[in-house]
């Protein structure tokens, strides 16, 4: 049963990857990468149960948080072309 879930998640990851490659706009690609990350968390959790090593869940937990930060950082970079501050704002603001 875990194998079936892992295969379904892998197929969905493939679909997300196709969107990330063909997506017409950069936002399609970011969306695909974000979904890909969520599916990776699921895959890690399922694989942890498949191989009977619950330590995988810690990796999944960290991956879920990193995935969020990655998406926000990429978005900020594309919106403002810099990570440190908003465009046109003084240094010192976030």
């Amino acid at each position: 049963m875990f194998v079936a879930a892992a295969i379904a998640v892998l197929v969905t990851m493939l679909l997300a990857l196709i969107l990330a490659i063909k997506g017409p706009t950069v936002y399609d690609r970011i969306l695909a990468v974000n979904t890909f990350g969520t599916l990776t968390v699921l895959l890690i959790a399922v694989l942890g149960f498949l191989s009977g090593r619950p330590a995988f869940l810690d990796i999944g937990l960290v991956y879920a948080l990193i995935n969020f930060i990655t998406t926000i950082a990429i978005m900020k970079f594309f919106k403002y072309s810099r990570l440190g501050r908003h465009s046109g704002e003084d240094l010192g603001g976030l």
Partner: peptide, 16 residues
């Protein structure tokens, strides 16, 4: 798990 996997696949199909 099967329901979740089915929804994942549907979401992936919808993405495309």
């Amino acid at each position: 798990i099967l329901i979740g996997a089915a929804f994942c696949l549907i979401g992936g199909i919808g993405l495309l």
